[in-house]
Design a protein around this nucleic acid. Sequence first.
DNA 1: AAAAATCTGTTGCCACGGCAACGAAATTCA
DNA 2: TGAATTTCGTTGCCGTGGCAACAGATTTTT
Lengths: 210, 210
Amino acid sequence: MEQLRNLPLFAGMTDGEIERQIEALRGQRGRVEKGSVLIRQGERVDRFGILLEGRLQGHQVDADGSLSVVSTLGVGMMFGEILIFSDCPAPVTLVALTDCRILWLGPMDLSRTHPTLIGNLLSTIAGEYWALHQKIAYCGIVSLRKRIFAFLSDRSVAAGVPFTVPFDRNGMAAYLNADRSALSRELSRMRNEGILDYHKNRFTLFVSAL
Amino acid sequence: MEQLRNLPLFAGMTDGEIERQIEALRGQRGRVEKGSVLIRQGERVDRFGILLEGRLQGHQVDADGSLSVVSTLGVGMMFGEILIFSDCPAPVTLVALTDCRILWLGPMDLSRTHPTLIGNLLSTIAGEYWALHQKIAYCGIVSLRKRIFAFLSDRSVAAGVPFTVPFDRNGMAAYLNADRSALSRELSRMRNEGILDYHKNRFTLFVSAL
DNA sequence: AAAAATCTGTTGCCACGGCAACGAAATTCA
DNA sequence: TGAATTTCGTTGCCGTGGCAACAGATTTTT
């Protein structure tokens, strides 16, 4: 309960309302062990989940058969909540990176769902939409250096200096869709030129524009 | 009314329900002339719109000051509907490409909104989310040729042969984020190799895999 | 119908960045 | 604590694809 109260989905709701809504959404807690597949690409989905413990990862097989990592989910994050409102099959496979505890919810009857919860749901989905939009904006920048800088610059104004990025190098490269070694190379150059400094995923920018 | 009934937002609702909901959403029709700005990047937005007539275009200025076209909207499409559920400022500027007629709706009180309309709204937003997701999937393909082919291949299975794409060359290049001339060059090559044929935005694929 | 504007194809140049391969550092596991 | 695994930086190679510039075709404007 303590945990549920802090979830964005239940923001602004009383404990009683939360309990009643979970009931209405046929909530049930479950465990899955490392390696399990929660959602299979191509499947139809009619319930969504909240990750109470553990880590998940979204995989996608492209048309040519190559596999790519789409997203990584941590505690408190939701999955499948967008899918249940689409008529399309799951475009990604969701795998448990570790043993997980999950709160399953759905199917959802909107006429019996609390407006606050619906609002929270919409906010969450909207946020995820703009997150994708942002990623696309970065990927539209042709020069790798400018792409990296735009990303770091945004993080810097959002989080101050120094700041951390929620990625390891591989993840950061994937997000900016660049090659990992190319990313490392460019970061080194920028460090040598005095544009920034970093250690692992902790960065400091020394200039505000390129 | 005739027109409203066919909008995805009002799908499955009776005329009476539609009218009542428009009233609850403080709906008002408006006109804007070519060149007007409907939403300015950075602004807060508390109402959304449905394009009844005309064409709109979304622009975005990157961190380095360069302008890029993000999207183009046609009759029946909504705009701002995701924004009103976010706490972030508008990431794009929306400009009228032609004279337009618009139905403005909002602010929205979820507790007074018909569940069906909420469902339609969620479906629409979910659809837009997966559309972005798809675009990102394409952009993740490193080889331009494979990127183009993945795109055309998907359109082909969805729409048969021959099929049309909703873009001119510029738009298609932007969507696949590629350079227009590079796109033309690659399409030519593929045509010469007998992989496909095309005229303007009408394509025919001759192979199903690359 | 002429003129202006837009869209499309083509081509040469060449640098950016993907790829592979390797070693070092760091983290995880036994 | 040592071994195994993963992460990260570095470097050489070289092909892809961005860029610029131009011509023809198509569309729109007046």
